[in-house]
Design a protein around this nucleic acid. Structure first.
Lengths: 208, 208
DNA sequence: TAGATTGTTAATCGATTAACAATC
DNA sequence: TAGATTGTTAATCGATTAACAATC
């Protein structure tokens, strides 16, 4: 970490793809992988993969390839994926509840620890995860929590400002709203509508 | 459309951002916008915006800026967003149902017309949208449907192959699975776990 | 017209990849 | 060692943006 050359943004965005693939390969009992194999698997050129991996150290062996476990460990250690990122969720509506139930990501990046909602009727323990009133966000913030998922669009800008003050560093944003993010906070939009629009644009421009 | 210089991929991916912003501005009663204003609004340099827009024609007026309505119309007409893209949904689990209820995108890109699930218990009319057995996908495919949202990971590769044969051109993928997409089909992953991982990677690499 | 902002050119920056030297 | 694949260099490609000419 200390001497890490600054990793290009494009590379950083491919790491999750590699990590996912490596976990799947490991699940299939594969212990060693060559960049060319991984390339076929994820659809990224092998040179690009080797270059991307080289930012994390000298991980492969010439003539051999990479040990799957070594790569997975590196992603975990060097990049701070320690499987228990504490995540909070803002908004316990339909989508929020779907995310709460979507517990497949336990032990992958961590888990949603608790949720918040303005609607008192939604503040309950009846789901897999406790839901607290939005007011209590500051006091209920889990120790070390850096990441929030927001699904509620009511007063979203205010909420984002509050999250930022609370020390949240990354926000996964499911609202469609226009949000200005404070410095030092990264916001990743997850926008089905925009995704569909991109698809429409791209399919249209494909068929000329 | 006919003489459209091929639009760069990066530009294509920004169009939904512009369109969203323009609709919001229109909602605020704003009729004219300069590239510099739009730039402040969406956080993309004004030169980039002007260049992106120039692929769609000569839309602005020197000394004046752009008419919001003109831009919105161009996106709609030239790029085929006609508000009623017919979308099908595969998988009526928690996430699927959240998407069905998430009808905010009606009249934005179109709407989910129907859903499919392998589980007969989930094939019902009790939601806002009819859910049919997965078997009936081919016969129930809405006229002109090009886009599918998949949330069910069971046999996902088979499903994707089927969708492709049915003529689906774009897939929004909510599963975590490793999917090989047939030629001519675009798959856009929407992956909360990967998004969170990207956030963790990026926040970690920010704090050095 | 004069002022302003667009549309576009050309320079810069970053990302990809072909080619190959290093090395297991 | 010889064969193979990595790690890295250098060339290419694409995207961004500064600067400015075109023009409303």
């Amino acid at each position: 970490m200390e001497n890490m050359k600054s990793v290009p943004k494009a590379t950083l965005q491919r790491y999750p793809i590699y990590l996912k693939a490596l976990r799947q390969l490991k699940g299939l009992g594969i212990e060693r992988v060559m960049s060319s194999e991984l390339s076929d698997y994820v659809g990224i050129k092998s040179t690009t993969i080797r270059r991307d991996l080289s930012f994390l150290g000298t991980l492969g062996k010439q003539g051999f390839g990479y040990e799957v476990d070594v790569l997975i460990d590196i992603f975990n250690e060097k990049l701070g994926i320690d499987f228990d990122e504490k995540i909070i969720l803002v908004g316990a509506g339909n989508l929020g509840r779907a995310l709460m139930n979507y517990n497949r990501w336990n032990y992958v990046v961590g888990e949603i620890v608790c949720a918040f909602d303005i609607d008192p009727a939604k503040c309950t323990n009846q789901y897999s995860i406790p839901v607290y009133p939005l007011d209590e966000m500051e006091q209920r913030l889990p120790e070390g929590c850096r990441i929030a998922i927001v699904t509620a669009s009511k007063d979203i800008q205010k909420t984002v400002n509050r999250l930022s003050k609370m020390g949240i560093k990354g926000i996964v944003d499911f609202t469609h709203e226009h949000i200005i993010v404070p410095k030092g906070v990264i916001l990743k939009p997850v926008d089905v509508v925009s995704t569909i629009q991109e698809l429409v644009f791209e399919t249209n421009s494909m068929t000329k």
